[in-house]
Design a protein around this nucleic acid. Structure first.
Lengths: 202, 202, 202, 202
DNA sequence: GATGAATGAGGTTTCATTCAT
DNA sequence: CATGAATGAAACCTCATTCAT
């Protein structure tokens, strides 16, 4: 019997634990070896499962597992960032909080984010969905700053894409160079974002 | 006898043409459907070949084909950019030329660059190689500008990564939204890069 | 402790009820979707059970469940037909009663019989057993009629096969066209059987 | 590269031979062990192939193989029967030719027909298609006989179903008892059909 | 040079069955 | 009695690669 159609609330503790375990193993495999090599067999081995059947038992199919990874990681990520952003009031401060919250989360969840980056690169539909969500949120922040006169005049969507790109870019570096030190990059990124946006709209 | 191990110089005209044809077809398939779905079968079909055997006949193996795509595209890309950069003298102008040359090439070779982006996302070793080359070149440009006092003080490698990321990021957007208009993005990108670097080192 | 190996007499009421429930669900699934798609998972779902484990708990294995379905349906079927046949005395009347009793049961138990038909089509050993029983019974009826001089001379086993085939054939039609109207078919079948057998042995 | 989309005409001799070989092996396996047990692995073994991959190479998928079997067998069957039927003129003679042609073909192609019977039992859509074609053809024959006054009044579709059922029924017997002697059955079947239809419409 | 045929490894998924609780 | 979790075999299918012609 499958757990396929069960909604998150009705999952037993055992099931939640197993799902989490599988998701973690998948994250590890994807982050370490790349999405292309993340077969059920490797994931099962990494998770210490006796067969790939257990994965299909807990997830409807491959896409379901992948979606679960993305959902879980991005929900945590977005939550972390939103909390930090919402602690600030002025747009410039909020934007700076956004950048530093991003970097913090990257530091503590490198593998998870690299895994999601890899997934989105290998799955266009997932990429489209996530990218839109990210960029929309950033754009809102920027437009807000412009309305309040804190930010200069610029094309908000383009700048949103640029900022998001700089965050993603460092993940790509990390996927190849896991020990890359983020200190300098964070400093420069915050500076760049400030320089890019500051200046009142004339 | 196989053509596999022959070095570029030894290739006959026919062979060069076939290789180019296969590379073009592969680019198209990867750009349109993603790296994951770019099987030899699809590439052969797109190229109008009757058998995947021909691909293995002209390329030692899959990796060889992929490397050829990347080599070809990146060589042309780098050549185009270098030419435009070298036409300028002052670091700031060279950097601006770099950005606009990048965008121009993206406009005219969208599919090729999206394909390479997809490939690098799916193959860590390729990614590492390309990224290093790109960032090194950019870093040189930035260091030069700082030495000549045109650029402010910043961590050159970090800013190089940031600039390269903004270029890559727009390719990800294009991979999902092929008709995205680059005009505004190019404008903002040039502005951002100028704002990010300008100011003499004190 | 398992209920698997218990003989029918030893079964508790609860257990009998569960078995019946599972058998009914299996009949439904097989009749609706075909034997090939009648997995334990589908049967459990149809029966409103939470696990396929319950099926294996009550039945030794798949074959046991299938056998139970066939046994139950065919016992009821045979009982119904025998009762109707035994109400008549003359062979011709008994044979006619046999045909009309068959059709009546088909009308009231279409799904059950379609399920059994599907099962026998998918399991040679089951088919052999049932077919032999059916044909033997019919053959007895025919031989009796010949002995009493009511039926013409014919090869009884062949005619038995033919009559049984016409009964099975309509089930195949019903498996594809559940709403097929049996009225005309019953009329023709009774006529055919009468025409096929009537005439004294010279 | 696959031969998937090739139409029958453009198949090479080698390919035609391989396809025929695989079809024959599949027929044998299905006739001997039943449709349910006819996995690619068994078919490949029976055909002496080194891997199941070769089956997928020559047939788009399982359904394609199954369809090919059915097509091939039923085309030959229908051709044989039609030829024999068309050699006669009067409806009664045509119907008798139909029956005896059916039996002849069953004798020479037992395995093929048993295989098709098994396939249709395991695949509702295929069953529906074939049954409709068979019954339609028979019904035409019967209606023709009624129009010309050679046949008595009866419901043509029902009698068509009955006749076809008697033909199918003997195949089921053969699937379990391959050495069953058809002589008596053929005799009785021809008699039954004659008795069932003869007599002018009043 | 080119091709179609063949191969076998490896992918996801389905499934009946077992077992601890 | 019943359940959910786990297992591993087997299914179909895709694929890169090899090879005879």
């Amino acid at each position: 019997m499958r757990a396929k159609n069960s909604s998150p609330e009705q999952r037993s503790l055992t099931e939640q634990a197993r799902r989490a375990q599988i998701v973690e193993a998948a994250v590890e495999v994807i982050a370490d070896e790349g999405y292309a090599k993340a077969s059920f067999a490797r994931i099962a081995t990494k998770a210490g499962l006796s067969s790939t059947g257990l994965i299909t038992y807990h997830f409807a199919n491959r896409q379901d597992l992948i979606d679960s990874i993305v959902d879980e990681v991005m929900t945590a990520f977005a939550g972390h960032v939103r909390e930090r952003v919402d602690a600030e009031f002025a747009p410039a401060a909020r934007l700076d909080a956004f950048v530093s919250a991003n970097l913090d989360f990257i530091r503590t969840h490198r593998k998870h984010l690299v895994a999601v980056l890899d997934i989105t690169a290998g799955s266009r539909t997932t990429l489209a969905k996530i990218m839109k969500a990210d960029i929309d949120a950033l754009e809102d922040l920027l437009v807000q700053g412009q309305r309040q006169g804190e930010f200069r005049a610029f094309h908000p969507r383009s700048v949103a894409i640029a900022i998001r790109s700089m965050r993603d870019g460092i993940l790509r570096v990390l996927s190849v160079e896991p020990d890359f030190d983020l200190t300098s990059y964070e400093h420069e990124l915050r500076t760049l974002v400030r320089l890019a946006t500051s200046g009142e709209i004339p």
